[in-house]
Design a protein around this nucleic acid. Structure first.
Lengths: 215, 215
DNA sequence: ATTAAAATTTAACCAGGGTTCAGTTTCGGG
DNA sequence: CCCGAAACTGAACCCTGGTTAAATTTTAAT
C-alpha cells in the first residue's frame, strides 16, 4: 500500500520529468537552430521563416517559445554565455601560479569559444542589434564580469612578481579579449592548427611577446 | 580608385571653386554623415530618414547620390579603407629595424583607426551585411593585403634575429589585428589614455608580453 | 475514454522603411 | 536674362517580414 503510493509518486515524478525534459529538448532545438542561423547569416539576414523551415514548422509556431525575435536573440545569449564566465571563475579559484592560470584560461576560453562558436559570434558581433536597453545591459554586465576576472589575473601576476609591475591591466585585458574574439572570425577547426595548439601559441605570445629574450 | 577618392577629398580641402568640386563636397558630406550613423547605430538601425534628417533633406533626395542603401555602405568602405593599407606600406618601405617598424605600425594603425573610427567600425563589424558577393570580395581583398604586410614585418623580424624564430606569423598576425580592431569598440578619445599612449602600451605588450624578463 | 493543457497550424494583419518618379527649384554658363 | 542640367522635393508605392490570434491537432493525466 505504502509501496504503491511511493511507486505512484515516483512514476508521476518520472513522467513529469520526462515531459519537462521533452519540452526542454524541443525548446533547446529551437534555440540551437536559431543560434546557428544567426551566427552564420547574421541576425537581420535570418528570417523567422528560415528558422521555421529548418525546424519543419510554421514561423507562427515559433512564438510559442519566445515573445519576439529580439527576445530570442537575448535568450540565446543569456542561455550559455555564462559558460566562459564559469570556466574562468573556476580557474581563478585554484591556487595555481598566475602564469599557469593564464595558460589554463587561454585554453579554456578558446575551447569554449570553438565549442559554442555560433553563440559567441552572436554575443560579440550582434550586440548593436540589441535594441532594448535592458538586453544590451545584460550583455554588457556579462562581458564586464568576465573582463574583471582577467584583470584580477593580471593583478595577481603583478603582485606575485611574475608579470611586469607597470602593466596597464584594463587596456591589456581589452587587448587580450579582443584577440580571443577575433578567433571567431578566422579560426578553422579543420585547419592547420587545433584549438589546443592555437591556445599554446596565444599563451606564449601573451606571456613572452614577439621579441627573442636572452635566457 | 581609392587613391583617387583620397586625392579628391584633399583637393576639396584645398580649394572649393569649380562645380565638380562642389559636387564632390556635397557628396562627401552625404557619405560622411551616413558613415557616422552606420558606425554609431549600426547599419540596419540607421534609417534612410535618419541620414536625410541630419543633412536636412528628404530621404528620396539621397538616391541622387547612390543607388541603394547597400551600395552606399559599400561605397563608404571602398572610399577610404585604403588609408591604413597605405600607411602600413609606407612604413614597410623604410629601412628601420623590425622592432622600430612595429612600434611605428602600431601607432599608425591606432591613429588611423581613431581618425576614421566610423569607417573602420563599419568595415569590421558590418561585413555580414554586405549581401552582394562582389562587395564582400572587395572588403576581403583589402583586409588580406593588410595582413600580408604584417606577416612580412614579422618575418623580417625573425630573419633579423629580433623576433623568436618559432613564431607562427599567420596566427599572430590575426591575433594582433584582432587586438587593434577591438579598440574600435572600447577606446575613448576623451578617456584616461591618448591614442599615442595606448599605442605604446600595445607595442610594449606585443614585443615583450606580460612576463617580467631579466635584463 | 475523456478532457484539459500543450503544441502547432493557418491565415491574416500591419507597420516600417527602402525605393521610385514626376514634378519643382536652384544654379551656372552663354 | 534665359535655358538646360543639376539638385532636390513630396508623396505615394509596395513588399518584406515580424507579429497576432483563433482554430485545430497532439499529448498526457484521470
Amino acid at each position: 500500500m505504502v509501496n504503491e503510493a511511493i511507486l505512484a509518486v515516483s512514476s508521476i515524478m518520472a513522467a513529469m520529468s520526462t515531459v519537462q525534459e521533452k519540452r526542454l529538448a524541443r525548446e533547446q532545438r529551437v534555440f540551437d537552430t536559431a543560434a546557428r542561423l544567426f551566427a552564420t547569416r547574421g541576425y537581420h539576414a535570418t528570417r523567422m521563416q528560415d528558422i521555421a523551415d529548418e525546424l519543419a514548422m510554421q514561423k507562427g509556431s515559433l512564438y510559442y517559445y519566445f515573445d519576439s525575435k529580439e527576445s530570442l536573440l537575448l535568450e540565446i545569449v543569456e542561455r550559455r554565455v555564462g559558460v566562459a564566465l564559469a570556466a574562468m571563475q573556476a580557474i581563478m579559484e585554484t591556487d595555481a601560479l598566475p602564469t599557469a592560470k593564464l595558460k589554463e584560461a587561454v585554453a579554456a576560453h578558446l575551447n569554449v569559444f570553438q565549442e559554442h562558436a555560433d553563440l559567441y559570434t552572436i554575443f560579440n558581433f550582434e550586440r548593436l542589434n540589441l535594441i532594448h536597453p535592458q538586453a544590451a545591459e545584460t550583455v554588457d554586465e556579462l562581458a564586464h564580469a568576465y573582463e574583471m576576472l582577467w584583470r584580477r589575473l593580471l593583478q595577481e601576476g603583478i603582485a606575485a612578481g611574475e608579470f611586469r609591475a607597470d602593466l596597464d591591466a584594463p587596456v591589456l585585458v581589452k587587448a587580450i579579449v579582443g584577440m580571443f574574439n577575433s578567433t571567431l572570425l578566422w579560426f578553422d577547426p579543420a585547419g592547420r592548427l587545433t584549438v589546443g595548439e592555437t591556445a599554446v601559441i596565444f599563451a606564449q605570445f601573451i606571456l613572452q611577446g614577439l621579441v627573442q629574450n636572452p635566457v
